[in-house]
Structure formats: structure tokens, C-alpha cells
């Protein structure tokens, strides 16, 4: 790949890193990442990955920008209210870096469409806000051997782990979705805006490390932080022989749509 002088300037702080260099930046620029959810986690992930020059960034979201999003979903601006989130996100990513090809999917992921969407990508970022989607992403990535970053935030807490084929998956740790309505969604429970940025940028860093092939990913480790006390810890996790999808006797053998917990935004309509 031949860099233009503009690209050498734009990516100079990457290229001078010994662990990135010219070849690492080329790998980033050849990378294809899919971000599912253009919300609190997807916003910072999309911005940093666009800025980093990831070649193709797909972004999936069926919603439009709502005023309640603006406290944390920093890719959406006040004038974007009522605009499809994927369009709003695409405009900002292209404004940051015209090198990046952004592909939008104005839809939600379900069992019947997720495999078609993820198939063209090297890495998937879970930026969703509900358990059915998180389990669906895990299952689709396990079946299709796609690495992905799990991320979840609530109140002042965040957690993330990175799946690569053959290593511990989300279900190895969290067997199955919690009962409907047992867990509040973000719109019911509140979240400190800045922790969305903390977690989404960790996910973006994992994507970049995956592409350049340096360092240690959060595989077989669950990173948990509590921003109220500002403590971080990583808990080792293992591939689980009783895992319902990647264990010795799998019971999950096809993709299914778990029932969506009723969210107060929907019940309001």
C-alpha cells in the first residue's frame, strides 16, 4: 500500500509506534469492522475506529436520534434529533476521516438477518443495550467463527471481554439470557454518560489490537470496572465444557430471537 503524504501525517502517531508502524497501519486500513448499535458504546467506538483509518466500518442500528441519547452518545449532535442513528454516525465518521468506507444498516439484528450482515466483516463490536441482542451476537459469531468484543454498561459499571474462535465465549461465562424484565435496560436504570466512552474506547482499542496483531486481547478475561470508585479488575474466564453453544454437548444449535424485555421507551409509545 502506498501512503499519501496526507495519510502519513494523519496516521503519524500510529506509524511511529513500534508496535504499529507502517505495516500495522496498513492492516488497520485493510480491516473491516462491524459495530452493532450506534449508541453509547458504538458512538465512541465508531469515532475512534474511523479516526484510526479502519478501511470499512459497518454500523447497524434501527433507531433515530432521541434527545435522551445526547448525554452519552457523542457521535450524535443536537441538530441530529429524529435522524436515523446510522446516518448521523456515518456523517461524523466521514467528516473525521474521508478515507473510511462506512456501510449503514438501518435495522435491528435478528436471527434471520444477523449472519448476512456479519459475514463480510473481520471483527464485530457489540454495542447493544439488551440481552437478547448480546446473546444473538455471541451465537452468530460462534457459529460463523467471527471474533467480537462484548461490552455492557449500567449505572457506573462496565464490563467487556473479547471472543476469538476457539476461546471462551459469552455463554461460557453467562449461560443464557436473564429472565425477561429481571434486568433493567439503560433507559430504565440510568448510566453515567462518560462510562459509555470508557467502555466503547476499550472496545475500539481491542479492535485495533486485533488488526495489528500485537499485545494481548481480552480473551479468556472479563474486564469489569466500577467508575464510582474507579476500580478496574480483570477476572480470568475459561472455555466452559458445559457451555450451551461451544461446550461438549451444545444445546444451542441454531440462532433464536429471545424475547425482548419491555423497555420503557417502547411502552411509552
Amino acid at each position: 500500500m502506498k501512503f499519501t503524504d496526507e495519510q502519513l501525517e494523519r496516521y503519524s502517531r500510529h506509524i511511529i509506534l513500534q508496535n504499529v508502524g507502517v505495516t500495522g497501519q496498513e492492516k488497520i486500513m485493510n480491516g473491516k469492522v462491524l459495530i452493532i448499535g450506534a449508541g453509547g458504546l458504538g458512538a465512541p467506538a465508531a469515532l475512534y475506529l474511523a479516526a484510526a483509518g479502519v478501511g470499512t466500518i459497518g454500523i447497524v442500528d434501527g433507531d433515530v436520534v432521541d434527545r435522551t441519547n445526547l448525554q452519552r452518545q457523542v457521535i450524535h449532535f443536537t441538530p441530529d434529533l429524529n435522524k436515523p442513528k446510522v446516518e448521523s454516525a456515518k456523517e461524523k465518521m466521514e467528516a473525521i476521516n474521508p478515507d473510511v468506507k462506512v456501510v449503514t444498516y438501518k435495522e435491528l439484528v435478528f436471527a434471520n438477518n444477523i449472519e448476512g450482515i456479519i459475514k463480510d466483516y473481520d471483527f464485530i463490536v457489540d454495542g447493544t443495550d439488551n440481552f437478547p441482542a448480546k446473546f444473538l451476537i455471541n451465537d452468530a459469531c460462534v457459529f460463523n467463527k467471527k471474533p467480537f468484543s462484548h461490552g455492557g454498561i449500567l449505572r457506573f459499571d462496565g464490563q467487556t471481554m473479547t471472543y476469538v474462535p476457539g476461546e471462551a465465549c459469552y455463554r461460557c461465562v453467562f449461560n443464557s439470557p436473564p429472565p425477561k424484565d429481571a434486568v433493567p435496560t439503560c433507559s430504565q436504570a440510568g448510566v453515567l454518560g462518560a462510562i459509555a466512552g470508557m467502555l466503547g474506547t476499550i472496545q475500539a482499542a481491542e479492535v485495533l489490537k486485533f488488526f495489528i496483531g500485537e499485545g494481548e486481547l481480552l480473551t479468556n478475561r472479563l474486564l469489569v470496572f466500577d467508575a464510582l470508585n474507579m476500580t478496574f479488575r480483570t477476572a480470568p474466564v475459561k472455555k466452559n465444557p458445559n457451555c450451551p453453544i461451544c461446550g461438549d454437548n451444545p444445546t444451542v444449535t441454531e440462532l433464536v430471537d429471545a424475547e425482548q424485555a419491555m423497555c420503557d421507551l417502547r411502552s411509552r409509545m
Binding site: 501512503f3 502519513l8 501525517e9 503519524s12 502517531r13 506509524i15 511511529i16 508502524g21 507502517v22 505495516t23
Partner: peptide, 13 residues
């Protein structure tokens, strides 16, 4: 700096 280092790294490639 640091663009000179960048250009050296590109040339070394």
C-alpha cells in the same frame, strides 16, 4: 518531528 521518523519508517519498509 515526528513526520521525519514516519518517512524514515516508510523508507525502511
Amino acid at each position: 518531528c515526528p513526520l521525519n521518523l514516519v518517512k524514515v519508517k516508510v523508507a525502511l519498509e
